[in-house]
Amino acid sequence: MNTSPLLSVAWTDHVTGSRGHLVVDRLVRGVASGGLRMRKGCTAGEVAGLARGMTMKEALHYDPRGRYVPLGGAKGGIDCDPRSPEAYGVLVRYLRAMRPYVERFWTTGEDLGLTQDRVDRAAAEAGLVSTVQAVFPLLEDEAAARRRLADAFARSVDGIGLGELVGGCGVAEAALAALDRAARPYAGVRVAVQGFGTMGGATARFLDRAGLSVVAVADARGTIANPAGLDVEALLAARDGHGVVDRSALRPGDREEPGAAWLAADVDILVPAAVSYAIDAGNQRLVRARWVVEAANMPVLPEAEEALAARGVVVLPDVVVNSATNAWWWWTLFGDIGADAEEAFAHTRRAMRSLVGRMLDRAEVDGTPPRAAAHALAEERLRELDERYGWY
């Protein structure tokens, strides 16, 4: 796959000096999809890598029988602490500057450091109709599609919005598919999750409800651990808007540990669900899990993945594992599914089971790691999309 992005835009906030980036890796039918993240230290290179990953995520969900035709890949990033008092103003000004791109060919939404509600509020203040308005011309019935998506976002399940849950459902299903392939019963399987925001929190809920034992979760304040298993629902209810758990909700058996303790937890499944580049060549030796399931984008550096593979640790890659949130938006908007939560979860589970199965089958046949197999599958899908729709 061509590794040069189609478009890169750099932005500087005239008020605070904060830097922002937009990278469009590829267009399909004139549109690209990818979230907007905000974190201190976000770089142009990081955003470019994420945009390329979005190209592959979109392509991997291509189904010629579906109404949803995958888009190209893009990503936005802002170098700013999302907890700072000035962050919201920076977000509004960034979106105001990027308004022509959002209106014409970049569809976006929440990513690391941002919630969809916050992005939507800032987008409205920046004069945008919607953060996904670039895709509206591709819809058969725009009004019905927008109502369907709005109805879906209005749904909640046990106190958490459907839009927050679908991605975690996909991550959990990827992990469960790996367990099933290894003929490993769910009971007794131990899990550690880094990051307890939208993706990490939802993943923890679905794995907990599947019968696995979540024994460690990490947030910005540190790691919460209990070898007998954490009360995931209580911790979810005690989160703030940034995924930080109120420690007054901890039970007597729960203990607070340093922030990096999640990495070395005695678990079977490790779920990095926060920042990129969390596992590197140095700290990978601390990993004790059999599977690393990438809920975050680019959490495992290549040299770390190579070292983990040499120790028999399987890394399930982000381009597959965390692709369900993006796909769910489009399944719903294009009308492959309705706004119902159970329909969304069932469709997500079927799609992820199929995708993970194809990836692991390909890895076995080719004798490659799962990531290489996923990239090979994406290349095949991209060629199909090129033949049918062209490059732009």
Rank of each mutant, 00 (worst) to 15 (best):
Gly201Arg: 14
Gly253Trp: 10
Asp219Cys: 03
Ala218Leu: 02
Ala249Phe: 03
Ala261Lys: 01
Asp231Trp: 05
Ile224Ala: 09
Gly259Gln: 11
Pro227Leu: 01
Arg209Ser: 01
Val191Arg: 09
Arg190Val: 00
Asp219Ser: 02
Trp262Gln: 07
Gln194His: 11
Ala202Leu: 12
Pro258Gly: 10
Ala210Tyr: 03
Leu236Asn: 03
Gly201Glu: 11
Pro252Gln: 05
Arg221Leu: 09
Glu257Arg: 14
Glu256Met: 13
Thr223Glu: 09
Ala238Cys: 07
Trp262Phe: 14
Ala234Phe: 03
Asp219Gln: 04
Pro227Cys: 04
Leu236Ala: 06
Arg255Asn: 05
Gly229Cys: 06
Tyr186Thr: 15
Pro252Glu: 00
Phe196Trp: 03
Gly222Asn: 11
Gly201Trp: 08
Glu256Cys: 14
Tyr186Pro: 09
His242Ser: 14
Ala249Tyr: 08
Leu207Met: 13
Gly229Asp: 01
Pro258Gln: 07
Asp219Arg: 06
Leu235Lys: 01
Val191Lys: 05
Asp208Ile: 02
Ala238Asp: 12
Asp180Gln: 12
Gly253Asn: 11
Ile224Asp: 03
Val244Gln: 10
Ala187Asp: 13
Ala237Gln: 14
Ala192Glu: 02
Ala228Tyr: 07
Asp246Cys: 02
Gly222Tyr: 07
Ala177Thr: 15
Gly201Asp: 12
Pro227Val: 01
Arg190Glu: 00
Val193Trp: 07
Asp180His: 05
Ala178Gln: 11
Ala204Cys: 12
Ala228Val: 06
Arg184Trp: 04
Ala218Val: 02
Ala182Pro: 11
Pro227Glu: 08
Ala178Ile: 10
Ala210Glu: 11
Leu207Arg: 05
Arg181Phe: 06
Gly188Pro: 06
Trp262Ser: 04
Gly201Phe: 06
Arg247Ala: 12
Arg209Trp: 04
Pro185Cys: 08
Leu230Met: 05
Ala210Phe: 02
Gly211Lys: 09
Gly253Gln: 14
Phe196Asn: 06
Gly241Asn: 11
Asp254Ile: 08
Arg221Pro: 02
Ala182Lys: 14
Ser213Met: 10
Arg239Lys: 13
Val191Phe: 04
Gly253Ser: 08
Tyr186Asp: 02
Gly195Cys: 13
Val217Asp: 01
Leu235Trp: 02
Gly253Leu: 09
Trp262Thr: 04
Gly188Ala: 02
Ile224Tyr: 07
Pro227Phe: 00
Ala225Val: 09
Ala237Thr: 10
Ala234Met: 06
Val245Cys: 10
Ala177Ser: 15
Glu233Ala: 15
Ala220Cys: 03
Ala218Ser: 15
Arg205Trp: 15
Ala237Tyr: 01
Gly243Met: 00
Asp240Asn: 15
Gly197Leu: 05
Val217His: 01
Arg251Leu: 15
Pro258Glu: 07
Val189Phe: 08
Gly201Cys: 14
Arg190Phe: 00
Phe196Lys: 02
Tyr186Arg: 15
Arg205Glu: 15
Ala216Ser: 10
Arg190Asn: 07
Asp231Gln: 07
Gln194Val: 05
